[in-house]
């Protein structure tokens, strides 16, 4: 009988945890993270949606002071609210033009990717705008654009263009702010590409060179494909940066002139939390719309990462 002389009890007599150890342990480790994420990210998403169905000024409790209005806020947003339309268009402008940071960052990175004396210093100087606060960037550019004493008008004056008031003109103001935003964002993309360039396989470059590739061809067919992971991350952070653009707008124009530089995040703040904003429900509805837009991109990012993982054979 006693063929196996172990202390181990038969499986049926082991504790539940022992039996399921392999399956359960990872979840145990994940619980704190999941709980935090659920509490501070997932739950508020649903709360925002719930809140957007009410007319509420944020004072007093929602149950006593809030008034249920159904989807009225969304109806108003999409049919009657011109400020919302302007914000949506500006968000689109941000999404498109902010992406210029990616080729810009690549160019700077290629330029700085050499071994010269003091190159580390140059690299840190180029990275500097990303380190300083967005508020400071905004202030610097506000002065730069100043129609009376700003450097920008002096610069374009050199080539004979009359002075313009970039931030004071509703058609140019958003582009002016985006340009300011590109300064730190380019630096960020640059650093991503610099690390990416370190990982470029020298053997492939060598082989390409033997095959006669140089200049643009080398860049396009050999270097850039190897930078794909860096490009992906740069794309992700730039899109997210574009959608959350807020501080620059707040500091440079405060949404003006006459509301022409608002984006969704700023408009949401203005409607619900700013000095004159007491419409929590309406702000929440804007937040939900912004979330839906972000969801498209987040969905794409997740899908694309999932594909990568699958391809890697996990």
């Amino acid at each position: 009988m006693a063929t196996t002389t172990t202390n181990a009890k038969p499986r049926a007599q082991q504790g539940w945890y022992k039996r399921n150890e392999i399956a359960v342990t990872p979840w145990l480790f994940l619980i704190p993270g999941i709980a935090m994420f659920a509490l501070y990210v997932i739950l508020p998403v649903f709360q925002s949606f719930y809140l957007s169905l009410f007319e509420w000024d944020g004072l007093g409790s929602l149950s006593t002071h809030g008034e249920y209005v159904g989807l009225d806020h969304y109806e108003k947003l999409f049919t009657r609210d011109r400020a919302f339309n302007i914000s949506l268009w500006n968000n689109l402008k941000w999404l498109i033009f902010y992406l210029l940071a990616i080729p810009g960052g690549l160019m700077v990175a290629l330029f700085l990717n050499q071994k010269v004396f003091g190159i580390r210093l140059y690299k840190s100087l180029f990275f500097f705008p990303f380190v300083i606060s967005q508020i400071v960037v905004g202030l610097v550019f506000t002065w730069f654009y100043d129609p009376q004493f700003g450097l920008s008008n002096w610069l374009i004056g050199l080539v004979g263009i009359p002075p313009v008031n970039i931030l004071g003109n509703p058609t140019t103001a958003t582009y002016g702010i985006i340009a300011a935003g590109l300064w730190p964002q380019t630096a960020y993309c640059m650093i991503l590409y610099l690390t990416g360039l370190n990982a470029v396989d020298p053997e492939q470059v060598e082989a390409a060179r033997l095959d006669g590739a140089k200049g643009h061809k080398m860049l396009w067919y050999i270097i850039i494909p190897q930078l794909k992971p860096a490009t992906f991350i740069a794309f992700v952070v730039t899109i997210i940066g574009a959608l959350r653009s807020f501080d620059l707008i707040s500091i440079m124009t405060n949404g003006g002139p006459f509301g022409s530089t608002r984006v969704l995040s700023f408009y949401m703040f203005e409607k619900s939390l700013s000095e004159y904003g007491f419409k929590m429900g309406y702000g929440a509805a804007i937040a939900v719309v912004l979330f839906m837009i972000m969801l498209v991109f987040i969905g794409y990012f997740l899908w694309s990462m999932y594909q990568d993982e699958k391809a890697a054979g996990h």
Binding site: P257, Y276, F278
Partner: peptide, 17 residues
Amino acid sequence: PAEMAKAAMEGMQEFMV
């Protein structure tokens, strides 16, 4: 009221330009 004031002041700024 706050919401009226905000919209109106924005309109006045636009009018002045």
